[in-house]
Simulated scan of single mutants.
Amino acid sequence: MQNTILVALAIIVALSLAAVWGYRRSDAFFLCLSPVPFSLIGVALAIFASFRNNACYERYWEGRKQWGVLTATTRDLARYVVTVPRLDDALSSATGAHPASDAAHPGSPHPDARHLVMLLTAFVQVLKHQLRGTDPAGALRTLLGEAQAAEIMRLAYRPHSLLMRVQRQMTAWHRDGRIGDILLATGLAHLDTLTQAAGACERIRTTPVPYPYEVLLHRTTYFYCVLLPFGLVESTGWATTVVSVFIAYAFLALHTIGGELEDPFGQDANDLPLDALAIHIERAMREALGDDAWPPVPVPDARHRLD
């Protein structure tokens, strides 16, 4: 954020020095303004900036809540597909082995259950890439293989298509008698929750804060900061530079933070760490499958930020 407003602050420093120099050279310096209007405008500008920042932070916080819903629901579904359907009978009949308890085979879920859990993992990865406008092909190939990745990449609504595949598998289990009506309804309710969470994230992504708010606040903030040194020079003298830069930093930083929080799914420093959130979900999925190879735990950088 500091890099974003560094140039603007440098301009404010230059204007402050010019105001002090001009005021010291001549009492009738033409840009020596009264500080009273700046006090009134500053209060109104602070209220307007706070209103916009609250709106942007609400978008950020709603995005984080929806990803919390995604995390909890995918974990629930992974537990559901690994433990609820009577797939051990199908596995034992295919292999000729005697059905065993879950404790005897804690790391060997049925291939259908494994595939469904990987579809859920792919859903999270594809949704992340869709919200960021990046390419999910690599993640799909890693999780589902070349053939399925190619099929999904040809589609426009990839997260929805992955959930449709999960639902088809659940309804197939229901037709085969692996799950009953109530258990099927429970699984489909979890899919509905994932659909709603993904839709809420897409709504945030595709509905920005109204453009007039951005333009008005941007122009007013910069215009105020540019004229501020000439309104303070008569009352603050040589301290004009320090005071002007301090006030300008507060307003410009508030404006910049709002701009970053407006799209919480981007890749700016203050956006949601979607990579880390997706990795945590994948680790939970692989733990439910009993896999040994997990993605590494995301580590914050020197400024305690995750990607």
Rank of each mutant, 00 (worst) to 15 (best):
Ile5Asp: 03
Val117Thr: 15
Ala49Thr: 15
Pro106Leu: 09
Glu58Phe: 04
Ala100Arg: 11
Leu120Phe: 08
Leu162Gly: 01
Pro111Lys: 14
Arg24His: 14
Gln130Pro: 01
Leu188Pro: 00
Arg168Cys: 10
Leu252His: 04
Met170Lys: 02
Asp112Phe: 09
Arg219Ala: 11
Val43Glu: 04
His190Phe: 05
Leu289Trp: 05
Pro273Tyr: 07
Asp112Cys: 08
Gln130Arg: 15
Pro296Trp: 01
Glu262Gly: 06
Lys128Ala: 03
Leu9Arg: 05
Thr73Met: 02
Gly145Asp: 11
Ala269Arg: 13
Phe30Thr: 07
Ala269Trp: 09
Val81Leu: 06
Gln2Ile: 13
Ile204Cys: 08
Pro264Thr: 01
Tyr222Ser: 07
Ala302His: 08
Val36Thr: 15
Arg25Trp: 04
Tyr80Ala: 02
Glu260Ala: 08
Arg114Phe: 14
Phe123His: 15
Leu31Pro: 03
Thr207Tyr: 02
Arg24Glu: 15
Ala103Val: 12
Met285Asp: 13
Ile204Gly: 05
Glu214Leu: 13
Ile11Lys: 12
Leu277Pro: 00
Tyr157Glu: 15
Glu262Arg: 05
Val126Pro: 00
Ala137Ile: 13
Arg132Asp: 02
Gly63Pro: 06
Leu227Gly: 05
Leu227Tyr: 06
Cys201Thr: 03
Gly42Arg: 01
Ser235Trp: 10
Pro99Ile: 00
Ala18Met: 11
Glu287Val: 12
Ala49Asn: 12
Arg64Gln: 06
Phe123Pro: 02
Ala172Gly: 12
Leu216Trp: 13
Ala172Cys: 11
Pro229Ser: 05
Ala113Thr: 12
Tyr222Pro: 03
Ala150Cys: 11
Arg86Cys: 00
Leu184Met: 09
Pro109Ile: 06
Val299Tyr: 00
Ala288Val: 04
Gly177Trp: 01
Leu272Lys: 00
Leu272Ile: 04
Val215Tyr: 13
Ala113Gly: 15
Leu70Asn: 03
Gly258Tyr: 00
His160Val: 09
Ala113Met: 10
Ala185Pro: 02
Pro136Thr: 13
Ala19Gly: 02
Leu163Met: 03
Leu163Tyr: 01
Ile47Cys: 07
Asp135Cys: 07
Trp238Glu: 13
Asp135Gly: 07
Asn3Gln: 14
Tyr80Ile: 03
Glu58Leu: 08
Thr121Glu: 09
Tyr249Gly: 10
Gly199Tyr: 09
Pro296His: 06
Val126Arg: 00
Val69His: 02
Asp268Gln: 10
Glu58Arg: 13
Ala284Asp: 14
Ala172Ser: 14
Ala147Gln: 14
Ala278Tyr: 00
